[in-house]
Design a protein around this nucleic acid. Structure first.
Lengths: 196, 196
DNA sequence: GCATGTAGTTAATGCAGTTAACCTACAGTC
DNA sequence: GACTGTAGGTTAACTGCATTAACTACATGC
């Protein structure tokens, strides 16, 4: 019997592909093993537990996610950067719902040297860089950042969960929403709104 | 051995109390039974499965949630209604994170007569009623509604997951965000923005 | 008082994650 | 090219939890 040539990374990638197909809730060691043509206990030579596997998938996903957003924002500014970043995020979640859910579930770091931390920070840094194009009052940046994360996260998860039932175009709603945010952000900049 | 006097409702309520304490992920038949002073299999006389129990908790929660938002908006309009509704939602999620998560997980109806449907519709109806106070263009109402759900859902779940790490006041961020939305909505009304 | 149904019990089943014991394909050494 | 040590895999066994089966006793209708 020849060796399968598994590795922590290949197991993680198989798991990531799986959760995108069957949903993060349905991740199981048996399915991952089957997909790799191997018996379930073999996986434990490369990951310590199912929780460990889920966490590795989360780290992988958060890294890909950070790349996608950085690349989308790259070379753009202001309204363009916002629209491109937001669309990139939505596209990622639509194409990789299981990975995104994994990242979501693991967003709480397990310790100070959890590799999810730099990945999450890269995501945040991209959003922050994008917002800088609006020249907000420094005291308001954190609020705008949190709002942005909230809307995009909320929209993406609601869409992924099938939460938008009415048959009005979800695409239209998304662009409308981005436009709304953009207008509001530009408005804050121009008017001298009271700092928080 | 005296009877415990269980009922589908009492089991559901015990489950709801439990998930708020230990998290929806950690719902288990054993914990619910223990809390009711009963052996695990007894629960199956009142609910058909753990999935059934989770769904009942979701329906209960969504109903409470709908009541809370309706009550908060009641008698207010415009900016006041928005702020009151949003704060009521945030308060509910903070006080009942497990219930909210249960409702979230069950948001996809299992069939056309799923009791979660009217509960969800009541929530949506409250938000829609609140938005009516802004006199938006009819074509934009659905987009504004989806945006509103997205921000509030996103903010609540991120906060519940401990996603806001930076030590800036989360309360301030929330009120800032509501103010941002309010300004944007009032702006749409006054300016004759192009319909979607 | 007694029959009957139902809430609860204990005992048994099944499945998924995990661990233990073992076995062998491969890498490096002589 | 045989020798050996290790790491990647296997089968078998264990555990915890959801679920089901078989059974018991309370409580109500007659």
């Amino acid at each position: 019997m020849p060796r399968a040539g598994l590795t922590a990374l290949s197991v993680t990638e198989a798991g990531a592909a799986l959760v995108d197909e069957v949903g993060f809730q349905n991740l199981s060691m048996g399915l991952v093993a089957e997909r790799l043509g191997v018996k379930t206990p073999a996986l434990y030579k490369h990951v310590t537990s199912q929780a460990d596997l889920a966490h590795r998938i989360a780290v992988l996903a958060m890294g890909e996610f950070a790349d996608a957003i950085r690349d989308a924002i790259q070379g753009r500014a202001g309204s363009d950067a916002l629209a491109a970043g937001a669309q990139a995020m939505r596209a990622y979640v639509r194409e990789h719902p299981g990975r995104y859910a994994a990242g979501d579930a693991a967003s709480r770091p397990t310790g100070p040297d959890d590799p999810i931390i730099p990945a999450v920070e890269r995501v945040i840094a991209s959003w922050a860089a994008m917002l800088r194009g609006y020249h907000l009052d420094p005291g308001q940046e954190i609020h705008a950042l949190r709002m942005l994360r909230s809307v995009l996260h909320g929209f993406s998860t609601l869409e992924a969960a099938g939460g938008f039932q009415i048959d009005a175009s979800v695409d239209d709603s998304f662009t409308w929403m981005i436009d709304f945010l953009d207008r509001g952000l530009r408005d804050i900049t121009t008017s001298s709104a009271p700092a928080s």
